[in-house]
Design a protein around this nucleic acid. Structure first.
Lengths: 212, 212
DNA sequence: GTGTTATGCGAGGATGGTCTCGCATAATGG
DNA sequence: CCATTATGCGAGACCATCCTCGCATAACAC
C-alpha cells in the first residue's frame, strides 16, 4: 500500500552513487542531456560492451574528456540512463494506475503496450543495459524492484481481488513479455507482430486475473 | 510442404564457412565437444563480448593455441555452437511435430515448454549469441529462418486450418515468448514463473488458433 | 577588470583481449 | 621404425578501449 503512494520521484533515489560531478550550469545540463540521448542510441545499436565511450562522445559532438567530466565511467553513464528511464516509465505507469480500475483486461493490455511503444527507443537501450553483466548492479536490481512494484500496483488497482502474491508474479511475467516488444518492432512483420502481442497480453491478462 | 519433409540434418548446412580445420581423430572430436560445452557455459554466464577465448580454453583444460586450432576465431566458435544448437532443437521440434495433430492447445504448449526446459542450458547461450551484434550474421539469419519454419510446421500439423501466413506469424511470436524462459528459470520464483509461462502459452495458443 | 569556478579538450598511459607462430608431442600408416 | 600428419602448447605481437591529466576557454560574481 505504502509503495503505491510513493511518487515517481523516488525512482531517482540512490542518486549519484559515483555519478561524477553533476552539471551546475545550463550549458552543462544541455550537454548531459545530449550525451544521454547519444548513449541511448549507441547502446541500443551496439549493445553495452560494444558501445564505445568514444563513439558516444563523438555522436553528441563532445570530446572524450568532456564526457568523462560528467560521467566518471561507462558504468556511471549506464546508471544515469537507467535512472532517467526509471523516472519516465514510472510516470507512465502511475498514469495508467490512475485509470486502471475502469479498464477491461484488453484495454489495460493496450494501455501497457502503448506505453511501451511510446518509450520504444529507450526500451531497447534499457534491455541492453539490464542484460549487461556488470559488477555493481545495485541500481539495476533496485530499478527492477521498483518498476515491478509499480506494475503490481497497476494490477491491484485493476483487479482488487488479486492477491498480492499473484499480482507480483503476474507483474514479473508481464515485464518479461514486454521485453520482446522492441525486437518485435524491428522485425519484418512489425505491425502484425505488435497486434499479435496485443493478443498475447489480452489473453494472458484475462486468464491471470480470473485464475487468481 | 517441402520444408516439412526435410530432416534435421539440413540445419547443419552452410557447414564450415571458415570454421577452421575440423578434427580428424577421436581425440580431436572429444576436445571440440569439450570446447563447445565450455563455450556454452561461458557465453551464457558472461555474454558474447565479455566471454574471453582464454577463459573458454582454460575451462576445458585446453591451451589457447589448441582452441584456435579448431576454431580460427571467436565468431567461428559461436557459429559452431549455433549449428550444434540448431541440430538439437530441430530434432526436438521434429519429434513434437510428429504428434502435434493429437495434442490439445494446452498440451502443445506444454510440449514446447518442456523442449525448451530440456535445452535450458544451451538456450541461454543461444539467446546471447543470437542477440550478439556481429558482422557476418548469415548463419544467425539462416538458423532463425529454419527454426521458424520448423515451428510453423508444428503449428500446421496441430491446426491444419491455420493459414500459412498465420502459422508464420504465430511461430515468430512463440519463439519470442520462449526467449524469456531461461531468464524466468533464473528468477527467484522460478517454479511459479514457469507455471505462469504455461498459462501464457496455453492462453495465447488457444486464441491464436481459433482467431485464425 | 580580476578572481573563481564550470566546462571543454584530446594526446597518451594502462589494461586486457584476440589471434599468430613456431616448435613439441602423439598417433597413424606402411 | 620412420615418415607423415594431427593435435597440443603458450609467449607475445598487435590492437582497441577505458580512463587520466594538465591545460585552455568560457561564464559568472563582485
Amino acid at each position: 500500500m505504502a509503495s503505491q503512494k510513493s511518487t515517481a520521484t523516488d525512482l531517482a533515489a540512490n542518486s549519484d552513487s559515483g555519478t561524477g560531478r553533476a552539471p551546475k550550469r545550463a550549458r552543462g545540463r544541455q550537454r548531459v542531456a545530449a550525451l544521454l540521448d547519444a548513449a541511448t542510441l549507441v547502446f541500443a545499436e551496439k549493445g553495452y560492451d560494444a558501445a564505445t565511450m568514444t563513439e558516444i562522445a563523438s555522436r553528441s559532438n563532445t570530446a572524450i574528456g568532456s564526457l568523462y567530466r560528467f560521467f566518471p565511467s561507462k558504468e556511471a553513464l549506464a546508471e544515469a540512463l537507467l535512472r532517467r528511464y526509471g523516472e519516465r516509465a514510472g510516470a507512465g505507469l502511475d498514469a495508467i494506475a490512475a485509470q486502471a480500475r475502469d479498464l477491461t483486461a484488453g484495454e489495460l493490455a493496450d494501455a501497457l503496450l502503448d506505453l511501451m511503444m511510446a518509450l520504444k527507443s529507450e526500451r531497447t537501450a534499457l534491455k541492453v543495459l539490464m542484460d549487461a553483466r556488470v559488477d555493481g548492479d545495485n541500481r539495476r536490481q533496485y530499478l527492477r524492484g521498483v518498476i515491478r512494484g509499480r506494475l503490481a500496483g497497476v494490477l491491484s488497482a485493476h483487479a482488487p481481488s488479486l492477491s498480492a502474491d499473484r499480482a507480483a508474479i503476474v507483474s514479473v511475467m508481464l515485464l518479461h513479455l514486454m521485453k520482446a516488444i522492441p525486437e518485435l518492432a524491428q522485425e519484418g512483420e512489425a505491425a502484425a507482430l505488435i497486434a499479435e502481442m496485443r493478443l498475447v497480453l489480452g489473453a494472458y491478462l484475462a486468464v491471470a486475473v480470473t485464475a487468481g
